[in-house]
């Protein structure tokens, strides 16, 4: 990547106050993310992966260090959490248009855009459903569509498929990779699955056990578009082994 970084994270530390002098979640984490890059943050649980996303989303102030966005101080953010986090009192379509509504966009244009997004995530015809009537995979697809509908500068994915069953999860990888290729967004995704990271990412950052530090920054030089079979190639296996060794 030759362009200027879209996002620079410099010596980011996060300490949560507790009884014995504070819990260090992150310890001087530094990395860069380039425009339209798909970066995965991989690490054991409790390595502060999610803390990074929370800081980037503005939900949490870092104890030290800085975050620099080239797009300006407050980039538009789309976030997907481990749970779909749909509002149960809104229909699917109203959940989808929430970010536009918050931005004050008129509803007619919002509806049109929502229609396109429903198409993209394959949920045509479910507009007026209540979230309670959706399966886990469908709900998560609504959540992904919602994170994209306001055309964010940065997409933050916090173990978005963690609560799905294995089969649905793998189908979602393919779908997400299609969506990413169609939308060309800069993505930062947190996961603890090596296969997931390799299947989706351009680059994988491995964090150490708490306090998290970047241990490995690995380019994933697998051809795109990636199909499911790629997971059975020797190249994939080599990269997976490297990541596994780094996680320890």
């Amino acid at each position: 990547m030759s362009a200027a970084p879209f996002l620079t994270v410099r010596e980011l530390s996060a300490v949560f106050p507790d009884k014995n002098g504070g819990l260090r979640a992150l310890d001087e984490v530094s990395f860069e993310v380039y425009p339209r890059e798909f970066v995965c943050v991989l690490g054991p649980s409790g390595s502060g992966k999610s803390t990074i996303l929370r800081i980037l989303a503005g939900l949490l102030a870092p104890t030290a260090g800085e975050v620099i966005f080239s797009a300006g101080p407050q980039p538009k953010i789309g976030m997907v959490f481990q749970e779909a986090n749909l509002m149960p009192w809104r229909s699917v379509i109203k959940n989808l248009t929430l970010p536009l509504e918050l931005a004050g966009l008129e509803t007619e244009a919002a509806r049109e855009k929502a229609g396109d997004m429903m198409d993209l995530v394959g949920l045509d015809g479910f507009e007026e459903y209540w979230p309670r009537d959706l399966s886990g995979g469908m709900a998560q697809r609504v959540a992904i569509a919602r994170a994209l509908i306001h055309d964010p500068d940065l997409l933050l994915l916090d173990e978005p498929f963690g609560s799905l069953d294995a089969l649905t999860r793998e189908r979602m990888w393919t779908e997400l990779s299609h969506i990413w290729q169609a939308k060309q967004k800069t993505v930062l995704m947190v996961t603890h699955s090596i296969s997931e990271a390799l299947f989706l990412a351009d680059r994988v950052l491995v964090l150490t056990q708490r306090p998290g530090k970047v241990k490995l920054d690995l380019e994933v030089e697998l051809p795109r578009p990636r199909k499911e079979e790629i997971r059975y190639t020797p190249q994939f296996g080599r990269l997976a082994r490297k990541l596994k060794k780094a996680i320890g």
Binding site: A57, G58, L59, M79, F81, N85, P99, H150
Partner: peptide, 23 residues
């Protein structure tokens, strides 16, 4: 979690009241 969602979308306190807390 929904509160965090609203914050990540830069919702104003008024929007959080009307579109999240009340419903």
């Amino acid at each position: 979690a929904l509160h965090n969602l609203m914050l990540s979308l830069r919702a104003t306190p008024r929007q959080i009241l009307l579109k999240l807390e009340i419903p």
